[in-house]
Computed example of a mutant assay.
Amino acid sequence: MTEHKPHLVVVAGVIEKDGCYFIAQRLENASQGGLWEFPGGKVELGETPMQALERELSEELSIVTKTGIWLADSVCDYGDKVVELKGYLSQWQQGEIQLNSHQQMAWVALAQLDNYRFCAADYPIITALHDHIALVNTAKL
């Protein structure tokens, strides 16, 4: 008999500003508490991933964003649930960041992301971000 775990589709926004990327630390009492992530949340019924990301970033950070290109998907089994994470570049449009669902935030250079402990599902997005930036830089040559 196979165990059926909840399968959640979740979106994450990689927000860039002045060459740094926004990351947020999950609340200690939350699932994956204390780990860092690119903010986002669950895709609700009837939403596209892009609509969900813009809604979630508004709810979690009180900012308006525009979803850009897709970076990567990852699937992680956290034991009690399976999370399918879709990572997108996101452009900050307006608003001042307020942490409504996180305990800390940081703006981090690409090379410094390795200094933080992320949720497992975020690591493929970091790899894709490195690949994307390398591709953009190569195209500029």
Rank of each mutant, 00 (worst) to 15 (best):
A106Y: 08
W107K: 08
E96T: 12
L85N: 12
K86V: 01
Q98H: 06
I133A: 00
H7T: 14
G41V: 00
A24L: 05
T67R: 09
Q104T: 02
Y21W: 14
L89I: 14
V14H: 03
H102L: 07
A139Y: 06
E37C: 10
K5N: 04
N137F: 04
D80F: 00
A24Q: 06
S101V: 00
A134E: 11
W70D: 06
W70K: 09
T67Y: 05
Q112W: 02
G79H: 02
G68I: 08
E28A: 09
Y116H: 12
T48I: 09
A24G: 08
Y78R: 07
E47Y: 02
K5C: 02
T2Y: 11
S101T: 03
C119E: 12
T127A: 11
Y21C: 12
V9A: 09
V10L: 08
I63Q: 03
T127P: 00
V82K: 09
G13E: 13
I125P: 04
G95L: 08
D122K: 04
E47R: 06
P39E: 07
I69W: 10
F38R: 01
S101R: 07
I69N: 06
E56A: 01
M105N: 11
D122C: 14
Y116E: 13
K66D: 11
G19Q: 02
E47D: 03
S90T: 14
H130N: 10
K66C: 07
I23Y: 07
V9F: 04
I15K: 03
V10H: 11
L53K: 01
M105R: 10
L141P: 05
L135I: 12
G79P: 01
I15M: 15
E54Y: 04
C20I: 10
I126W: 01
A12N: 12
K81C: 08
V9M: 04
L89R: 10
M50W: 01
E96Q: 10
W36P: 00
Q91D: 11
I63R: 03
Q103E: 15
G87W: 01
L141M: 05
P124E: 08
D114N: 11
K5V: 07
A30M: 11
E56N: 09
K81A: 11
M50I: 03
D73W: 02
G68W: 08
P49Y: 02
W107C: 05
G33K: 03
I126N: 05
H132V: 04
L61M: 13
N137V: 14
L35R: 14
N115T: 15
L99V: 09
K81F: 03
A139F: 13
A128E: 03
C20M: 12
I97K: 02
I69S: 10
L71F: 06
E84I: 02
S31I: 12
I63Y: 06
L110F: 03
G34P: 12
D77M: 07
L8T: 14
L61D: 06
R117Q: 15
P6I: 13
G19F: 08
G41Y: 01
I97G: 01
D18I: 01
L85T: 05
F22E: 08
E47K: 04
I125R: 10
L35M: 05
S58N: 12
N29H: 14
T2F: 13
E59V: 09
S58L: 08
M1T: 05
K5S: 04
A12Q: 08
L61Y: 06
G34E: 08
K5Q: 11
V10A: 04
Q112V: 07
L99E: 06
